[in-house]
């Protein structure tokens, strides 16, 4: 990597695997349960968080020396909420269709604990560039898990991917359904997201024993 120093590159690659916000830090589980019933929603959420966490981390990092430690959590919350609301308003005014798609996610983004977690754990103690990379890295790590979970939940729950009927038509009984396959409606409910995340954690830790805590 010519663009980033080794240390900086690690800020991006670490959260993708060995320090993944969902599977290792166990942050952002709530939104991972809520919106992964469909692959499309997962992707939209991943991109939104990428944006908010990248920008938010930079803003908090720039303010890190002037934020009073007693009220830092509230300050962080205010910053992220203001940021998200302003973006939402601008989209509503100039890209109405897009804002309709995203509006549901606004509340989920503000309350996403990955965002608060990264502000608190990283941006408050590091410079803007590093914080930006950390934000992007963690958002990507979050997005990857979201997309994996969304992929399996939509495929097994609805038999579709991004809305396309990849397994055939369950009502007309074509494709896989012709030989008696049925969608697992349980996959659409949030507990199954937790189980899929659990399986990912299991696979990840059995491949890398260092991740197993005592």
């Amino acid at each position: 990597m010519g663009l980033l120093s080794k240390k900086d590159a690690k800020l991006i690659t670490d959260p993708l695997a060995d320090n993944n916000p969902i599977t290792i830090q166990v942050l952002g589980i709530c939104s991972a349960l809520a919106i992964t019933a469909e692959l499309k929603a997962s992707i939209v959420m991943a991109i939104s968080v990428l944006f908010v966490l990248g920008v938010g981390n930079v803003v908090i990092s720039l303010m890190r020396n002037i934020i009073p430690s007693k009220i830092r959590i509230i300050v962080q919350l205010t910053v992220v909420a203001a940021l998200v609301i302003i973006v939402d308003q601008v989209l509503k005014a100039f890209a109405y269709e897009l804002s309709k798609t995203l509006s549901v996610f606004v509340g989920l983004i503000i309350t996403n604990c990955i965002i608060m977690g990264r502000f608190e754990a990283f941006a408050l103690g590091n410079g803007p560039w590093k914080s930006f990379l950390d934000g992007i890295g963690n958002a990507l790590g979050y997005g990857v898990i979201l997309i994996i979970v969304g992929f399996f939940r939509e495929l097994l729950g609805s038999g579709t991917l991004l809305g396309f009927k990849v397994l055939g038509d369950p009502i007309e009984k074509t494709g896989l359904y012709a030989i008696g396959y049925e969608n697992n409606g349980f996959m659409l409910l949030s507990p199954m997201a937790l189980i899929v995340v659990g399986i990912i954690i299991w696979v990840q830790r059995s491949r890398n024993k260092e991740l197993i805590e005592d």
Partner: peptide, 27 residues
């Protein structure tokens, strides 16, 4: 801490009010 909180409220409040008011016709 108190001054910072007040400053923050004023700045963020103004910013949000300004955004909302100026974009209202479009929305």
């Amino acid at each position: 801490t108190i001054l910072f909180a007040i400053g923050m409220v004023v700045v963020v409040g103004t910013l949000l009010a300004f955004t909302a008011a100026s974009l209202k016709p479009n929305i």
